[in-house]
Amino acid sequence: MLEINNLHVKLEDEDKQILKGLTLSVEAGSVHAIMGPNGSGKSTLSYVLSGRDGYQVTDGTATLDGEDLLSMEPEDRAAAGLFLAFQYPVEIPGVGNMTFLRTALNAQRKARGEPEVSAGDFLKLVRAKARDLKIDADMLKRPVNVGFSGGEKKRNEILQMAMLQPRMCILDETDSGLDVDAMKLVSDGVNALRDAGRAFLVITHYQRLLDHIRPDVVHIMAAGRIVKTGGPDLALEVEQNGYADILAEVGA
């Protein structure tokens, strides 16, 4: 589903190379985890895939279902089914959470040639999904993420994901800042979406999240590349020994 090949990315304004030949393939129905030390380029990868400004792709490709992601506008990538749960969701004063979500949902549907969801149906749907994530009605009414705690922001990301039903979901450290209960809610939200047509790329520092969202494949990323790929056991190894051994082993 998501194919990344030899991706090289530098900062647009600076002579700083961040991704240095990253190759990764995520097939439909699977959950891949990426673990790696701070600064290894995990967030950069998620931003480049979703189309944020400020980066320059100097080499390599990234496709979603065979379509060239890198030449698409961010909104077109979203409509094509790509979703990024941000590491740091932004607060947007003045834009209501509900208005935002409904605009986003209907814009995506329109781009795909699907009929718009009516206000009534939307309301029913969002209330049900919010309930599952223990997001109360008041939070839905507030401006996007404004005054939300760190954990609430992360739950709001998962709510958006549940509403938009993307096919390729990237979660960038969605577990950071979550307590045990919130972690459970978020994981349940993700697991509820798992199905044969959908794939996940879960970026995390901790094994903890992977106890709840069981990955099929675990990648270790360092200095802008995937340096090792394995099964769920690889995450346990990192948990016990840190990255040092692995990095030494692969000479990274």
């Binding site: 979703s50 189309g51 944020r52 400004d53 506008e73 961010p74 909104e75 990538r77 979203a78 409509a79 990024l84 941000f86 969701p89 932004v90 947007i92 834009v95 935002f100 979500l101 605009t103 986003a104 949902l105 814009a107 995506q108 781009a111 996007v144 958006q160 938009l164």
Partner: peptide, 14 residues
Amino acid sequence: ADHLFYLRARGVPE
């Protein structure tokens, strides 16, 4: 720019 990107990343046209 961050606000704009967040909205666009959710599928809202520019």
